[in-house]
């Protein structure tokens, strides 16, 4: 199997409380994966484990057949908007240029080529006119595009998005999903934590339903069924239109 992320028997717990239990997953490149599950299902923990940010209790994670440490530069993480300090004195360009840091040796400076790549990423997201703005001066949708531009600038293989559509307008949501689909078509690996069940069928090729254990993973058409959803969400099933599932 040429899966880009291979997870075998992953378990994680904090303070003796189990968050993820015995997860087996093989994530394929070229597909857009939606990661779904109720609050506390372990979606963020799954991401943190893949990124090597936390200690895992047991199990093995391989990225492109190698260890996390070896492949770290191939992965980018796009955090939720709420986790960012928007008052920070950083311009849009400053943030996007961060995407070039992994390419630099310790004392190596950023050069014209880095700036060009950053500028191209900004143009791709349609926000190059804001490059000198402080990040807090942008709208929610524009802010999300800044982080997407940084991710593109980093030229990674694997993208992990934590709720990219929270607090953005519909125009931006549309733009973001188009970019994600394009990245998938280019053979990248994309995992997206998502909450809005009504758009799952339109957006994702594959779904991962999670609730501490892996409920199910597979093709959206066959896997995203009412039965599987209620298995994952249990009593917590959010208000959702049945038409959205059966459509």
């Amino acid at each position: 199997m040429n899966s880009s992320i291979s997870i075998k028997g992953l378990s994680v717990s904090y303070d003796r409380k189990t968050v993820l239990s015995n997860i087996y997953l093989d994530i394929q490149p070229g597909q857009l994966y939606g990661v779904l599950g109720p609050n506390g299902a372990g979606k963020s923990t799954l991401f943190k484990s893949i990124l090597g940010l936390i200690d895992i209790n047991s199990g093995r994670i391989e990225i492109n057949g190698k260890t996390i440490k070896e492949q770290r530069k191939q992965m980018v993480y796009i955090p939720q908007r709420g986790e960012v300090d928007w008052q920070f004195p950083a311009t849009v360009m400053d943030v996007v240029l961060m995407g070039r840091y992994p390419f630099k040796k310790i004392f190596q400076r950023l050069n014209a080529e880095d700036r060009k790549i950053a500028m191209d990423s900004l143009e791709m997201m349609g926000i190059s006119q804001f490059k000198d703005r402080q990040i807090g001066e942008l709208s929610g949708g524009q802010q999300q595009r800044v982080f997407l531009a940084r991710a593109i600038c980093q030229q990674a293989d694997i993208f992990l998005f934590d709720e990219p559509f929270v607090g953005v307008d519909i125009t931006t949501e549309q733009k973001i999903i188009q970019i994600l689909q394009k990245l998938a078509a280019d053979g990248k690996t994309l995992l997206v934590v998502h909450h809005d069940l009504s758009t799952v069928r339109d957006y994702f090729d594959q779904v991962i339903l999670l609730n501490q254990r892996l409920v199910v993973v597979g093709d959206t058409k066959t896997t995203f069924t009412e039965e599987n959803i209620s298995k994952a969400y249990g009593g917590q099933l959010p208000i959702l239109h049945k038409t959205a599932i059966h459509k």
Binding site: L51, L53, V76, Y77, P79, F88, D94, M98, F107
Partner: peptide, 22 residues
């Protein structure tokens, strides 16, 4: 001056800096 990048990244977004190998 020399470590500006590292100071900037870890101050602004420590988690992201960590994922970048800093």
């Amino acid at each position: 001056v020399l470590f500006y990048r590292y100071l900037f990244a870890t101050t602004f977004q420590p988690v992201i800096a960590e994922t970048m190998g800093i």
